[in-house]
Amino acid sequence: MENTTADIIGNPLSRDIFSNSIQGLLLLKKGTILNQTHIKLLEKHHVDPSIIISPFSSNSISIEKMYPTLLHEIKKVFQHILQKKEEGVDQLLSHFTILMELCLQDFSALEIIHKNTAQSDYIYQHSINAGIISAMIGKILGYSKKNCELLGQMGLFHDIGMLSIDPAIVKKKEKLTQKEYKEMQKHTVLGKSILFPLTKLDILISRAALLHHEKINGKGYPCNRLEKDIPFMVQIVSVADIFNSMCTSNTYKEKKSYFEAINELISEAYGNTLNPAIVIPFSQFIMRKQLFKRVKLNNNETAEIIFIHANEPHLPLIRLKNNYIDLRKAAPLKITSFV
C-alpha cells in the first residue's frame, strides 16, 4: 500500500471517483490533486487506490493500451468468481467502466475491439466486447450514464457460465450433437447461479446471464419466456451478444462484416426473435457510420451509400456509376460487404 500511495499522491485524478460503500456518492472530482487525506477517504469508502494508477488513470490512456490489460484482469477475476470469491470484482468493474466510457466517446472503438480474437481468449474477449456494445446500444437509445454502465456490466458477465461447460464442447469445430447443444444451453442457468450470490453485482447482471438467450416469441432458452417477461435491458444484451458473436471468429465460424451482421439482426427482428425497438436504432447507427462509403454488391459491382432509410437501414439508397438505386425496390440486388 505504501508504494501505491507514493505513486499516486500529487497526481491529478483523470476521472470522478465514487464510493463503493454508498451508491452514487461522489468522493473526489476529476482534476483533484491527490494527498494523504484523499487516500484515507478512498480507503474508508472501500475504493482501492491502485485503480487510480496506470494504465487506467493516465492522461494518455487509449483503448489499445487498456484492452489487453483488462483482458488479463478479467481472466483472473472470473476464475476467482468461479471459486466463490469476490476478490478483484470492484477493481474489475472500475477498470471496465473507464474502458467503456472511452469507447462511448468514440464509437469507432468497435473496429478496435473487433480487430483480433485469440481462440483461447474468446469467452473473455466476447465478454468485454458484449459489455461495451450493450452500453453503446444504451447510449443510442438515450439511456442515462448510470444505466449504460449497468448495461455494460450485464454484458461483461453474461457468458460467465460458459466457463463451467466442458471445454471440449465449447471448442468443438463440428456441429454439436443434440446432447451437446443441450449441455451448452446450461451455461445460462450456471451463469445465474454463479453470479446471484455476489453482493457487489446488481440483480439484473445475474438475470442477464440467465435470460440472454430468450427470444421475444417465446422460442428461446432456458425458460421459453415471451417479450413481456424478459427485461428490456436483458433484450439489449441479447442483441449485443449476437452482434459481437457474428463480428468475431471462433473455432466453428468465420467473422462476418458489419453489414452481414446487421442483415442478420434485422432478419431476426423481422422473425420476431429480437426486439426491433433495439435492433433498428442500432442498425441505423451502424449504417449511418458507413454513409458515403463504398460497398460491394452481389453482382460484383461497387457502389456508394447515399442515404439510410429510417425503418430499413440495411436497404439504403446507393449510387451505382451514374444511377441512384433504392435497394428497397431493387431485389435481388443487395449489398454483400463494405469495401
Score class of each variant (00 low, 15 high):
320 L>H: 05
208 A>P: 00
170 V>P: 11
317 L>M: 11
112 I>M: 09
107 F>K: 02
200 K>P: 00
256 K>S: 13
130 A>H: 01
116 N>W: 01
278 I>A: 00
60 S>E: 14
100 M>D: 00
194 I>R: 05
311 N>Y: 14
338 F>G: 07
323 N>E: 15
196 F>D: 11
30 K>M: 13
137 I>M: 09
241 D>I: 01
49 P>M: 12
138 G>V: 04
132 I>F: 00
282 F>Q: 03
184 M>H: 12
100 M>R: 14
260 E>L: 09
212 H>I: 07
324 Y>V: 04
331 A>S: 13
59 N>A: 08
105 Q>H: 13
150 L>V: 15
288 R>N: 15
140 I>D: 01
153 Q>M: 09
316 P>A: 01
33 I>D: 06
225 R>L: 15
242 I>P: 05
311 N>V: 10
203 I>Q: 12
98 I>M: 09
152 G>R: 04
89 V>L: 13
120 S>P: 02
41 L>E: 08
174 E>N: 12
176 L>H: 12
307 F>N: 03
31 G>H: 04
80 H>G: 03
123 I>F: 04
162 M>S: 00
73 E>F: 07
85 K>C: 11
284 Q>T: 10
286 I>G: 00
10 G>L: 11
241 D>S: 13
297 L>T: 11
318 I>G: 03
86 E>A: 10
195 L>T: 06
166 D>K: 07
230 I>N: 00
128 I>M: 06
296 K>D: 04
74 I>L: 02
27 L>P: 04
217 N>H: 05
43 E>A: 12
93 L>I: 13
246 M>D: 07
103 C>S: 15
52 I>W: 02
284 Q>R: 15
250 N>R: 11
126 H>S: 02
76 K>D: 09
46 H>C: 10
178 Q>G: 03
301 E>L: 15
5 T>L: 12
8 I>Y: 07
289 K>L: 07
290 Q>D: 09
115 K>L: 10
48 D>R: 09
169 I>P: 10
10 G>S: 06
101 E>Q: 14
139 K>G: 07
41 L>G: 01
136 M>P: 00
303 A>L: 08
6 A>M: 07
157 F>H: 03
136 M>V: 12
215 K>L: 06
336 T>N: 05
247 C>S: 08
37 T>S: 14
231 P>W: 08
117 T>W: 08
216 I>W: 03
293 K>E: 13
244 N>H: 13
129 N>K: 13
19 S>E: 08
17 I>P: 02
160 I>A: 05
147 N>K: 14
176 L>K: 15
81 I>T: 11
172 K>Y: 01
63 I>E: 04
160 I>E: 04
72 H>F: 02
329 K>D: 09
335 I>C: 02
173 K>M: 05
67 Y>L: 11
237 V>N: 05
171 K>I: 07
216 I>N: 02
334 K>A: 08
159 D>M: 04
35 N>T: 14
144 S>V: 04
321 K>D: 14
310 A>G: 02
204 L>A: 08
134 S>C: 04
14 S>M: 09
178 Q>I: 15
210 L>M: 09
233 M>E: 15
258 Y>G: 05
332 P>G: 11
167 P>Q: 01
77 V>C: 08
172 K>I: 02
167 P>W: 02
171 K>A: 12
33 I>V: 15
174 E>Q: 12
301 E>M: 11
85 K>I: 07
68 P>C: 10
47 V>I: 12
10 G>H: 10
196 F>A: 11
